[in-house]
Design a protein around this nucleic acid. Structure first.
Length: 537
DNA sequence: GTAGGGTTAG
């Protein structure tokens, strides 16, 4: 029976393993430390905290909690289930600690985005093998610190530890997050040279990496050369098109995928619906949503409803957007209210926007965007007392917008710029260039648009702030230092504002340069004064 | 004999 339990756990038949454990208890078969460890592992991997706790009780009742292996399995179970307080408490009591349990702690903290806590465990480890290095690299890759992930990968190479496929998947993912194309090309070569190339998961990760680094062509090239493709390959390619605003190809690949008899899953539909909403294909989106439910028997989740709210909201069909919110079978979450609020902002729907913002704040009281929107609405209505209260509240709680940050790569070096950044060694030159660009653009009809500046400033100051947006600084850096005919590639952490969007379009025309900007959610390809998003974003 | 890291979306 024990060996059956073990093999269930190892073959990921967690539910069967748990069931078997029930049978063992009924049959009065005593569970030993081996089977308990396996079952705890199954609980962790299945994320079944309740069952894990029940096993913990059983362990206490039977006086087994002193066993080192059992403790290790318990910590791992709590960490895998995301119960970090409990995991840490047990972990602290473990002396000595081993690599297995420490790695479990690192990935537990990683799933919660608690990078510092993960790093603390990592740094305190006496001995580290490839698995814990991979866990730490993955932690950085998933926590929006791709540069740190790549730094750790470099350190690994210096130490002479050979990475394996799992490490490489995290490294590729880190590069995707970073969004730097030259780095992506380098990693692709590295992967091929070191014999990791050609496998399905690696190819899937490469598709995503190239798409997120701005090269739809290379993503497609990897895809076309694959001899085996699964649902992830197709979904990654559909998302690639969606991200780049090519809804037609996203839909055509969706069609081809079905013809190839690959069954789309819920993630696939998020991609297809996202493509529709970002290109204003309302009718197509409606059809896809219906087909998902009726033909593919997939129950829509928050993400799918969010896409639908977005689809209708962007297209100024706010009544239908509200209908989705009202009729969906569960309570709207932050993302849903946020989509509705954003749509109201685009289309100047004050009343509904206020309503959505208030619902959002009930769920997330410190949501910066919602507070700013409300304060702007109150300002327009001259409710100065309310405006003052909100500003005071934001000040007290220290709520501020994430600072805009853009990067650009030139000559294999990544340069980062914050809003109004003056720290770069070429700062003087960059600001001089900015003046020149503004002068030339004004001749082409440019007028700074301060709609996106929501702080309490005089109009003239607002104009300055808008000109100092990080992507403009990165752009000027590119204009100064890049080859005359090269494409300027910029990655930004926030959404591109209206003014920067116009600015980029004009620069692409006046300076005859191709510019590619990745913002928080998608790509903008500027050429000859036109953006690939056709100003719908 | 037990126990740890991975790719798509959000």
């Amino acid at each position: 029976m024990t060996s059956v339990a073990n093999s269930y756990c190892q073959s990921e038949l967690f539910d069967d393993a748990l069931e078997l454990f029930e049978e063992m208890k009924c049959a009065d078969v005593e569970a030993d430390k081996f089977v308990l460890s396996s079952i705890l592992s199954a609980c962790g991997r299945a994320g079944n905290l309740d069952y894990g706790k029940a096993i913990h009780d059983y362990i206490i009742q039977n006086g087994l909690e002193v066993d080192a292996h059992i403790r290790c399995a318990l910590v791992t179970m709590y960490a895998s289930c995301g119960c970090m307080d409990m995991a840490q408490q047990l972990y602290d009591q473990m002396i000595p600690k081993n690599m297995v349990v420490s790695t479990a702690m690192i990935s537990g903290y990683s799933r919660h985005g608690r990078v510092m806590d993960a790093r603390l465990i990592f740094d305190q480890m006496v001995e580290k093998d490839l698995v814990c290095w991979s866990a730490m690299i993955s932690c950085y890759a998933e926590s929006d610190q791709p540069q740190e992930a790549l730094r750790l990968f470099k350190e690994l190479q210096i130490l002479g530890i050979r990475p394996d496929q799992v490490t490489m998947l995290s490294v590729i993912s880190a590069c995707a997050h970073l969004g730097v194309l030259d780095k992506a090309k380098w990693i692709h070569v590295y992967v091929d040279k070191n014999g990791f190339g050609g496998t399905l998961p690696i190819n899937n990760a490469l598709i995503d990496m190239y798409a997120k680094c701005g090269s739809l062509e290379r993503a497609r090239d990897v895809f076309e050369k694959m001899t085996r493709k699964n649902v992830i390959s197709w979904t990654s390619m559909i998302n690639a098109f969606a991200m780049h605003g090519d809804a037609n190809n996203a839909l055509s690949f969706f069609q081809k995928m079905k013809e190839a008899n690959v069954e789309p899953n819920r993630v696939t539909f998020v991609g297809v619906l996202y493509a529709c909403s970002h290109s204003g294909l309302v009718e197509e989106g409606r059809k896809v949503f219906a087909a998902m439910i009726n033909e593919h028997k997939i129950t829509p989740t928050h993400e799918h409803y969010g896409c639908m709210v977005d689809l209708f909201g962007r297209a100024n069909l706010l009544r239908e957007a509200v209908e989705i919110v009202e009729t969906m079978p569960f309570a709207p979450n932050v993302v849903i209210w946020g989509s509705l609020m954003a749509a109201c902002q685009i289309h100047g729907e004050t009343e509904l926007g206020e309503f959505a913002a208030k619902r959002l704040l009930e769920l997330e009281p410190d949501h910066h965007g919602a507070l700013v929107l409300l304060s702007n609405i109150y300002a327009k209505e001259r409710k100065w007392q309310d405006v003052g209260d909100l500003r005071q509240l934001m000040k007290e709680r220290g709520i501020s917008k994430e600072r805009g940050c853009s990067r650009i790569e030139l000559d294999s070096e990544v340069h980062e710029f914050l809003v109004a950044d003056r720290n770069h060694k070429q700062a003087d030159e960059i600001y001089k260039k900015l003046d020149e660009v503004v002068r030339r653009l004004k001749l082409a009809g440019y007028a700074p648009n301060t709609n996106s500046v929501l702080v309490d400033l005089e109009e003239e100051e607002k104009k300055e702030v808008v000109l100092w947006h990080s992507e403009k600084l990165a752009l000027c850096y590119g204009l100064i230092n890049g080859a005359k005919d090269s494409c300027i590639r910029i990655v930004k952490n926030l959404r591109v504002c209206e003014d920067c969007h116009t600015f980029m379009k004009l620069v692409s025309k006046v300076y005859g340069r191709e510019i590619v900007v990745r913002d928080r959610t998608r790509f903008h390809h500027y050429r000859d004064g036109v953006c690939s998003c056709r100003d719908y974003w």
